[in-house]
Amino acid sequence: MSERYSRQELFTPIGVKGQERIRNKHVLIIGAGALGTGSAENLVRAGIGSLTIVDRDYVEWSNLQRQQLFCENDAKKRLPKAIAAKNRLKLLNSDVNITSLIADVSVEELEQLIDGVDLIMDATDNFETRMIINDISQKHNIPWIYGACVGSYGISYTIIPRITPCLHCLMEDIPLGGLTCDTAGIISPVVQTVVAYQTVEALKILVEDYEALRNKIVSFDLWKNEHSAIRVAHVKKDSCLSCGTHRTYPYLSYQNRTKTAVFCGRDSVQIRPAVKTDRDLAQLEKILLAQKGEIERNPYLLSFTIGSHRLVVFKDGRAMIHGTNDISVAKSLYHRYLS
């Protein structure tokens, strides 16, 4: 198998020694959507030792245009993204130790997942989760790489605890859920460019070439042919509650109260039970058979369509209510059919 990484080893900043370092590292990717599948493929092909990928969602047809690990069969079967991603990644490189988890990442999950992890890759679609990642990164001294995109615009920034400003320093206080949803669509070259910016920084961190890090927040618009980069080193705030002298990790405590989340641009609401349960989907199917709706089930989730709404229940008790952006409508559907 020595040929496998030969081109990467010929690249001087990595070399044989760098390849060994990559081989000994563990990366955690939060999200298996567009950015997550791109980063995962790059890192698995590059020969990362261990990769953990977590996602709360399942594959839909609208994902296939840009989420590179998924195929039509995954969408037909409504496979959870974590499962579909792992299936594909194992085919790409059987040497990598791949762990996948179907879960909504919050504080509790992240505290468990972080054990032994060298780097966190952001592939989420919301700032609520990013702020939790940011606080966890500071608390456990693990770097993370922010990446995001919408339309033809993309942005990335690398956060090294104790050295660079953190996301909280740069964004200051954002109200949770206060940023409006992006509904401008997305084109795949933008995804791939953000993934490139994120994974090249990941490789630098994994081979421990910290001197080579970009040290700038970078953004671009591929359609308008614009590019911008700002050196932000001196924006690090000593008063920052996430990375400053009197840090309190505020996003690790707020989060426990959030039980519902509206999915941006998806006309969907997620409801997460206060206590995690192991839901018996077969039992639920029997109960729902008495209703007029349409039921589909795979080993990971149950989908129940009634009127213009579709309710999808995962084994961990979470439910996604499609066909509404209204949390109270979603809650009443949840209670009527699923609780």
């Binding site: 999200g31 959507g33 567009a34 950015l35 997550g36 952001d122 592939a123 989420t124 679609d125 919301n126 700032f127 990013r130 990446g147 995001a148 995109c149 919408v150 615009y153 993309g154 942005i155 740069l170 964004m171 940023l179 992006d182 997305i186 953000v194 927040i217 970078v218 953004s219 911008s228 980069a229 700002i230 941006c264």
Partner: peptide, 10 residues
């Protein structure tokens, strides 16, 4: 002037 704005999608 350099301007960078944050977005959330991914």
């Amino acid at each position: 002037v350099e301007m960078v704005h944050f977005v959330g999608g991914g």
